[in-house]
Write a protein that binds this DNA or RNA. Structure first.
Lengths: 353, 353
DNA sequence: GTCATTTTGATATACGTCAATCATTTTCTG
DNA sequence: CAGAAAATGATTGACGTATATCAAAATGAC
């Protein structure tokens, strides 16, 4: 009934507890033969380390850090909120999480932050990453100290992190395109796209996926060149107004990046039959706009799921355990009818998406 | 730095460890004054019970049971698979889950199964429920024995369970309607609906939500009376064929229930411009059909998420802990582009959805 | 004030693992 | 075969809680 202990394993293997322990925690100085015997006994008895006892013994605490871009971006506010809540709840299991703010989209700043990390001894770190050779060395140093490192939302150089938690942005763009295509019901149309910056990898990927699907499966629809917005709501406001006024043939709008409050404001004053609108990330503005019927779809990456997964994965990495079966993170489609009553999106005083 | 132990609390409260323990585990025979002192000390120090130590001490095991309908229904196969995998992974934390099959949609059978449950001492039970006065008494008996009871996918009588984990089916129906409406791009149309049984509460609710939205927001579209299918693929095959042949004005199909392999087969032989198709639950057939472009949308309730949440909630209930912040479960919309590469839906040898 | 009752204190063991120590045995080297 | 090196055994004290026991003190009833 009760599961075997390490003593049972030692006995079954015909070695002492000390030797079994040396094998299990690979402390070295064990003959190959003994290792084999212990491994077999583990198999035979189905021994699994009692994590509760282990954690108790070494009075383990999980010190985690999250590197998140500074600023009032609504999406990252949501992320920060989720981290705090999850950490709060996980305090019972001796998990602490520290949010470290880094300047947004600046490789140099991120590099500094990672270097600082090396001193403090965290057990695991989740980083909203950037691509950049300069990050490789500090990341390697971190991991050399036994710190678990994962990329969050936006990936790090692949070789230098243990996992990436986030969506595939090409898929996100394809999904948006599929929905826009459907909404044309076989008719022709013209889509205006908005992009924050062509330097942001996620933006480029979304646009790429979007164009692929439209070109392949909806050849009667054309995609106009993207308008650059710098994720600035003011730009989106004026540009959207201009399009509504000057390009009445526009059947759909797709904003790949942030700044949706501007787009929504323009929509509020749109003529009766406005274009079909798709944006990313469910935050206060986009949520409200969906409910009010000012936009039609929100493609969301479920930051709540991402955060809870980040905690799970980091802990598993730290314990050197196997990961649970985790289904891929896929972009979620929201319409006004399947909005979650998520307190986090409601209570937020954030400026923008 | 290190968190306070119960001994610290006792000391701070000016009582002995024994008394502090009596308060914490409400063992009785404690003066009101002492209780107050201990409570204050707990507050002041921010004491939280070390779950690892507690579980170790009482060599806690969580014995869980899942009552799932028998049969080869692809959706419940998926559920069963997820339960096994999750249990497997949670074995490290001394969680065991037993799947108990009950005859589908039979209140009497479910009643018997619940009565049997009372004898075996499970710590928690998740039940794919039915409504019925006959269930109330055995459920009450279960809970009287200190067993945590939750409803899964389909609810139990509200007073007799601690939580319900599943989607709101009215919302699911509304979501389907929103998508179908969009796909008409303002044009008129006629939708054929399919229902397994008007006795199944989830089916009725989905249909209700669907009709609401179409009537309110898409008045130019009509919804035909539902065809009864008993979730039988053969019925769906023949009926869909008939509609494709005899009612060319049909612009969309919506199947509220199961049996989609029939619908998909009929679609495979459909004329060039087939109606827009929406079905429920992502399983082998529906997934394949999406990829092949034979149907357009799948509304899914994410059984993987439901199951993992069931485990989380049951354990929290058993430990009498607070629940983590859990966002509502909302129906998920799949198109061919945002399909998860979920091994569970792929490897399944299930017959039907 | 006595006696019964309730409340408190002091203390011990078990839970399974980690980590360390020290003595002893086995294996390797030349 | 001696001596060094490697491997093993035996044992112990944390870690923080649960749970039990027994004695001692405080409280209540009359």
């Amino acid at each position: 009934m009760t599961s075997p202990t390490l003593s049972d394993v030692a006995q079954a293997a015909g070695v002492s507890y000390a030797t079994a322990d040396r094998v299990i925690n690979n402390r070295g100085n064990v003959a190959a033969k003994s290792i084999a015997k212990v491994r077999e006994a583990v198999e035979a008895l189905g021994y699994v380390r009692n994590v509760a006892a282990a954690n108790l013994s070494r009075s383990r605490v999980y010190r985690l850090a999250f590197l998140i871009p500074k600023g009032s971006n609504a999406f990252f506010n949501r992320i920060r909120d989720h981290i705090e809540r999850t950490a709060d709840h996980l305090s019972v299991e001796r998990v602490t999480a520290e949010i470290i703010e880094v300047s947004a989209f600046a490789v140099a700043g991120l590099q500094d932050s990672i270097i600082n990390l090396v001193q403090q001894d965290f057990d695991g770190v989740a980083i909203v990453g950037l691509q950049g050779k300069q990050l490789e060395e500090p990341l390697a140093a971190l991991r050399a100290r036994g710190v678990a490192v994962i990329g969050l939302v936006s990936d790090l150089p692949q070789e230098f992190r243990s996992a990436y938690i986030g969506i595939d942005n090409i898929v996100a763009g394809r999904t948006a395109a599929r929905m826009v295509g459907m909404a044309h019901a076989g008719g022709s149309g013209s889509i205006q796209t908005f992009v924050g910056s062509m330097d942001a990898r996620d933006h480029v990927e979304r646009l790429q996926g979007f164009c692929e699907v439209i070109a392949n499966d909806f050849p009667q629809i054309t995609v106009c060149d993207p308008i650059m917005t710098k994720d600035d709501a003011a730009v989106l406001l004026s540009q959207t107004r201009a399009i509504l006024a000057d390009k009445p043939g526009t059947t759909a709008l797709y904003n790949v990046g942030a700044g949706n409050s501007g787009l929504v404001r323009a929509m509020g004053a749109a003529p009766s039959k406005r274009p079909f609108c798709v944006v990313h990330e469910l935050v206060v503005h986009s949520r409200q706009a969906l409910q009010d019927g000012l936009i039609d779809l929100v493609i969301d990456q479920r930051p709540d799921v991402e955060i809870s997964r980040a905690f799970t994965v980091l802990r598993a990495l730290i314990d050197k355990r196997n990961l649970p079966p985790l289904p891929d993170l896929m972009p979620t489609i929201y319409v006004q009818d399947n909005l979650p009553a998520d307190p986090l999106t409601d209570t937020m005083k954030a400026q923008d998406s």
